[in-house]
Design a protein around this nucleic acid. Structure first.
Lengths: 223, 223
DNA sequence: GTCTATATCTCGATAGAC
DNA sequence: GTCTATCGAGATATAGAC
């Protein structure tokens, strides 16, 4: 699939530049909406070169998606190291997850774009990437939470939904950034600070929400 | 912009059918990825009719987006009625929000699609829709929460982030459905039940997370 | 208002020089 | 490996009959 590069000297690495440019454009415009013209311009190369490295637009998309998915899932798993306690595990997950998405926003957008137009391709590639690594990154946290429930460290609660809520809270602000900016001015002024606040907020809210109910205080009721 | 319809008899209402079909297709494929062919087929009419009602693809998109945005925001505001207490307000928001998104999934996806490709158009139209109704739906809940903080009914917490977390938890499952299905089998088997559980979960987690800390229990620490 | 036929343009893909 | 030139398919848009 990949033409041989000269063994010595790899100045701009054209293939990688195409790959990155394609990821960016596909993430914004989607599989059909993306134009090879735009990808070539973004990579600073000629349109014909796209066909030299990846024969067709379809194959380029497949390559970007498959390789991107695999790398994304692997990297995410590695950045979500297990911790001893529940609290540390939760904190590590939220901080690691947001940091990782921050560094791979285009891939996150690309996957969401696939979700919008059906998700068939995504499900297939995600399943493959998961199988190759045998394990969904989030499930590690779910196991931790499950053990914590049995140990009485956190209250009984639907963990699948809890995990989905955590992921939603971490991920959504990235994919919906333009909307978030409308009523969260800090996200436009100082995105890094916004993310720091966001991480702290999510952990804070979750820890409080998962804490076992004290005796005498009905669950699900405010003071 | 709109040709006169015969005063009597409005059998299929072609314009509305085009509108709905365009919304669906644009939501999935995006502004550039969408094909007029597909929209026409989906609406069950000839391609030339698209140009009769809306001159160009661009104008069709603009019309769908602008009108859709306005209607979406207005309807959302109306379905989020104010309640007396904080708890009822929160519950009403979550339930109303999810129910509303459920009935307007295409519009939600269309807006997210715009977010993915920059969001310039979205910000403009959203701002206009908000100004026309003078008020962001979510801000009503934020005011309620703010008052509740001052009354000591909920603990001190960043309300902007809290509101963003609530919206994320409600909205994300819809736009990321194919991914959610991977590890939430119930979302594929019985979506309605999944949503009922989701609503209850979000309210439950939030109420617990916002409850004022009891004396003797450090905030942000598990038991 | 709705259709068929057609014009025009853009995109993806290929051929061939360098 | 990289470029220019070009072909053919498919998309948007228009003209004109009904």
């Amino acid at each position: 699939m990949v033409p041989q590069a000269p063994a010595a000297a790899r100045p701009p690495d054209t293939e990688q530049r195409i790959f990155d440019a394609a990821l960016t454009v596909f993430a914004r415009k989607g599989r059909d909406g993306a134009r090879l013209r735009e990808i070539a311009d973004h990579a600073g190369i000629n349109r014909a070169l796209l066909h030299y490295y990846f024969r067709t637009k379809e194959q380029l998309y497949e390559a970007v998606f498959e390789h991107g998915c695999r790398q994304f899932m692997t990297g995410l798993s590695q950045s979500l190291r297990a911790e001893e306690g529940v609290e540390d595990s939760l904190r590590a997950f939220v901080y690691g997850y947001i940091d990782y998405i921050y560094e791979h926003q285009d891939m996150a957008r690309l996957m969401l774009n696939e979700c919008l137009c059906g998700g068939g391709v995504l499900e297939r590639h995600l399943a493959a990437a998961i199988e190759a690594r045998d394990g969904v990154p989030g499930l590690l946290l779910e196991d931790r939470l499950h053990a914590a429930v049995e140990a009485g460290e956190i209250r009984e609660i639907d963990l699948r939904h809890t995990l989905l809520t955590i992921v939603s809270a971490c991920l959504f602000p990235f994919v919906a950034l333009p909307t978030v900016r409308l009523f969260h001015s800090r996200a436009v002024e100082d995105f890094d600070r916004f993310l720091r606040e966001r991480k702290a907020h999510i952990v804070d809210l979750l820890l409080a929400g998962l804490r076992p109910a004290e005796v005498g205080v009905g669950r699900g009721e405010l003071a």
